[in-house]
Write a protein that binds this DNA or RNA. Structure first.
Lengths: 235, 235
DNA sequence: ATTAAAACATGATAAATATCATCTTTTACA
DNA sequence: TGTAAAAGATGATATTTATCATGTTTTAAT
């Protein structure tokens, strides 16, 4: 079942793919060669909040969480970047240290693009710069939506939303027509929704009883996306 | 008493002033003339979430809240823009509808800049464009900090933070050496912190008992900014 | 295959926060 | 300046969510 018509997924995703698409074939080849890509193991850290940035990253394959460690050492996931997305550019462009940390959620294939190369392209290609400006402006609206839900939504609403988003990102790689499986730890789900791990487990049980999802070990499948969207209470 | 050294205020403020500063005197005069400025009464709405944007706004005087209306018709304040800041550019640059609403928090003097004029300058001035890119990247870090506190912080922490931020913004216009007064409704404070109004009132009482603040009617003064920063638990 | 560690699950309890009802004070304006 | 409306304040209560303790299952490495 599709999200189209019942949930505005574009309001929850960044759009750096369009920035990458502004590159010419030659630029793409020189910057983002798969040859130079590194393999990251699940859980491996790309960069940490507070570090001086030395470049940006392009995700060929896999998923990367961007997160912050709060006071009580609890982790808040800000965004999950998917295949074909860029990360790490905020710090470079703002001329600041990394505002958050990044770690692979699963085995991933990622190219590192040195700061200088990135800034060169930015200087040369006005299209690239314009798309970047557009993408960053769109991010404002994504984060704003998140902020609103995070501070006003109930635990169930926040978890439902997290499931919707992560399910959508899990579609890449799933054969068409087949329901994608969500393969995240309960802890990561908790850190996405900003709630306690035990609460995630209990709410998943509730969703299961309502036939919204089914599980097998840690894996979760969405049976009824319409009900899940309802549960997220997103109007 | 100053914030410097004890609290990184720059991590909580946008930086569109630097964008405006990229304008030449002539550009500034033609775009942001005080002559064409409009007076907005307290509570008056500049634009609403979902509207098609027709331009951006420059705040000569006053304060403007940017907010979203959640499901339960509760309002979440995303950001309070101060004197000399721009607002409304995200929607134009992202080529989307306004992602949030904006309303004057006090009597304000604001210039409307038509979309075309804004885009013209953007095309002409690479400095303007570059600063805009930098400002938007910085906003990511601001919103990210907000998101982390909003989903993980306690009510007291969030209110303390709101007070720190709004106090800082109230400094403009306060004679140097004098403690600025915070003049927001309890409801607005609640909507900034994302907590219930009654909870704000009770927490303010607590802060008063701890000698952190003093009040007179709705007005609030900070007696002890160090204690307030501690209360915000921001590390 | 065995086993230690990690992740998952569950129940009991405590803590935090929202909601509701009501009263008082302040503010705005006719 | 009187008065209605809005905002502020308070107490009682309900609800939500986190925390703690403990047991079970799964996972991964030897």
């Amino acid at each position: 079942m599709s999200l189209s018509g019942i949930f505005p997924i574009e309001k929850w995703n960044f759009s750096t793919q369009t920035v990458v698409n502004a590159l010419t074939e030659a630029e793409y080849q020189s910057l983002i060669t798969k040859q130079g890509a590194q393999k990251y193991k699940k859980g491996e850290i790309l960069f940490k909040e507070g570090m001086v940035p030395s470049g940006i990253y392009f995700i060929h394959q896999g998923k990367v969480k961007k997160y912050k460690n709060g006071p009580a050492s609890r982790e808040q996931i800000i965004y999950v970047a998917n295949k074909n997305e860029l990360i790490g550019y905020h710090a470079i462009l703002a001329e600041e240290r990394y505002p958050d940390s990044a770690a692979a959620l699963e085995e991933s294939l990622i190219t590192f693009i040195p700061k200088e190369d990135f800034l060169d392209i930015l200087q040369q290609s006005t299209t690239f710069a314009r798309r970047l400006l557009k993408a960053l402006s769109h991010e404002y609206s994504v984060l704003t939506n998140n902020l609103s839900v995070s501070s006003q939504g109930t635990a169930a609403e926040r978890l439902a939303l997290a499931l919707i988003l992560i399910r959508e990102k899990s579609k890449t790689g799933t054969p068409a027509g087949e329901e994608p499986s969500i393969n995240l730890s309960r802890a990561d789900l908790a850190n996405m929704a900003g709630i306690a791990k035990e609460n995630v487990i209990r709410l998943l049980k509730e969703f299961k009883n309502e036939q919204i999802i089914r599980t097998e070990g840690r894996k979760i499948w969405v049976n009824d996306i319409v009900k899940l969207v309802n549960r997220s209470n997103y109007k």
